[in-house]
């Protein structure tokens, strides 16, 4: 790109404009403080922070319910088919339903573990952002570098 004379000028101008834009965004972000940051997170990826707010409680509840209902069912079906195979009708069916119930509880426990982990990481990242902009988290570092590159 740099070899072409006419193009170079365009690029330079574009880069300057880009620098201005990123500086402006930075300054506006600074003005908005944390409020702006949150809005950004919700806009670009509702998964990050948005999922925990408000209505997500209902969807989490639905997930828990489905886990708890499905697991004994699957266990029961597995047990029943084993019974059909070996002709021990009630034994594996009962065992399957009971173990399935345990599996359901285990799945719910894992679900809540994941949620806790995520919340902790988010809290950590939020704290990190307030203190030092270039965090040691991968994504934070990447973004920092990108901004640096743009300013340069």
């Amino acid at each position: 790109m740099k070899e072409e004379g006419g193009r170079k000028f365009d690029n330079l101008e574009g880069e300057k404009a880009l620098t201005n834009l990123s500086l402006r965004i930075d300054s506006l972000r600074g003005e908005l403080g944390r409020g702006g940051d949150e809005g950004d997170g919700e806009g670009s990826g509702e998964g990050g922070r948005g999922m925990h707010g408000g209505m997500s409680g209902m969807s989490l509840g639905a997930r828990v319910m489905v886990e708890l209902l499905v697991a004994p069912g699957v266990g029961g079906v597995l047990g029943y088919s084993l019974d059909g195979l070996w002709g021990t009708l009630p034994l594996f069916l009962v065992l399957g339903v009971v173990l399935g119930g345990a599996a359901g509880v285990l799945n719910v426990k894992r679900l809540s573990d994941r949620d806790d982990e995520k919340r902790e990481r988010e809290a950590y990242e939020a704290g990190d952002k307030e203190g030092d902009k270039g965090g040691d988290k991968e994504c934070g570092e990447g973004r920092g570098k990108e901004e640096e590159w743009q300013v340069r």
């Binding site: 399935g100 359901g104 799945n107």
Partner: peptide, 12 residues
């Protein structure tokens, strides 16, 4: 238990 929990996935 783990086996059932694994097989539950597509259903849930």
């Amino acid at each position: 238990i783990e086996l059932i929990s694994y097989c539950t996935r597509p259903f849930s």
